[in-house]
């Protein structure tokens, strides 16, 4: 996106804001490396690390995974709408879209918790094999990121309610949206290369 330097959106309006956004992009590149390491590990363990435990095809179930995917993809759309509402200065709509985003995120997490309990009951725990450890660590790291995002989002909503939309809160909201989209992209990889590939 090319920004018109004379007419910058609010979240880019100060030097600090621009630095924050650049800094966060650099942080996201570190996050990409973090997840890349997890995926690499997972791919190493997916066939060779099963040991005496179950393989992916034996434990994956489509319905919860599909629900999770729909919830998270929709939340990525709604946070996009929130940022759009922010750009056209519709604070109320923005807050509502953020609330919807967080609710969808919470829904995603609940299904994921259900999924983890399910794995536990069918004997695929963290300790079962190299494969289950890699699987649950990858999913768990993503889930922990979403959880972190929920609390972060709540903090930002409180601040917008308190201070209204200004350079500071707009900057925070925009960075939060970057984070949320990133988690969504990671989920697309998880969905495609862990679940779908695993179920084939």
């Amino acid at each position: 996106m090319k920004l018109d330097p004379k007419n910058l959106p609010l979240e880019y309006s100060t030097e600090t804001n621009k630095l924050n956004i650049l800094g966060f992009w650099i942080f996201l590149s570190a996050e990409i490396m973090l997840f890349a390491t997890l995926f690499t590990t997972y791919f190493v363990y997916v066939d060779r690390g099963v040991g005496s435990g179950p393989a992916g095809a034996e434990i994956f179930e489509l319905p919860p995974v599909l629900i999770e995917t729909f919830l998270l993809l929709t939340s990525s759309f709604t946070i996009g709408l929130a940022v759009h509402a922010m750009r056209i200065n519709r604070v109320k709509a923005m807050i509502w879209f953020m609330v919807v985003t967080l609710l969808l995120g919470a829904g995603f997490l609940s299904v994921e918790v259900y999924e983890f309990i399910h794995y536990y009951h069918i004997g695929a725990t963290l300790q079962t094999s190299g494969f289950t450890a890699a699987l649950l660590t990858t999913l768990g790291t993503h889930g922990a990121h979403v959880t972190m995002g929920l609390f972060w989002g709540i903090m930002i909503i409180i601040q917008i309610l308190r201070d209204g939309l200004n350079a500071r809160t707009a900057n925070k909201s925009f960075i939060f949206s970057l984070y949320w989209h990133f988690l969504d992209v990671m989920w697309i990889f998880i969905f495609s290369f862990i679940y779908l590939k695993g179920m084939m």
């Binding site: 590990t41 363990y45 060779r48 099963v50 040991g51 435990g53 094999s129 190299g130 494969f131 450890a133």
Partner: peptide, 18 residues
């Protein structure tokens, strides 16, 4: 940390650890 403190099998020599 998971291997040492929660007994997972990432780097062990059994149960698919490498």
């Amino acid at each position: 940390t998971l291997d040492r403190q929660f007994l997972t099998n990432f780097f062990t020599t059994s149960d698919g650890g490498m």
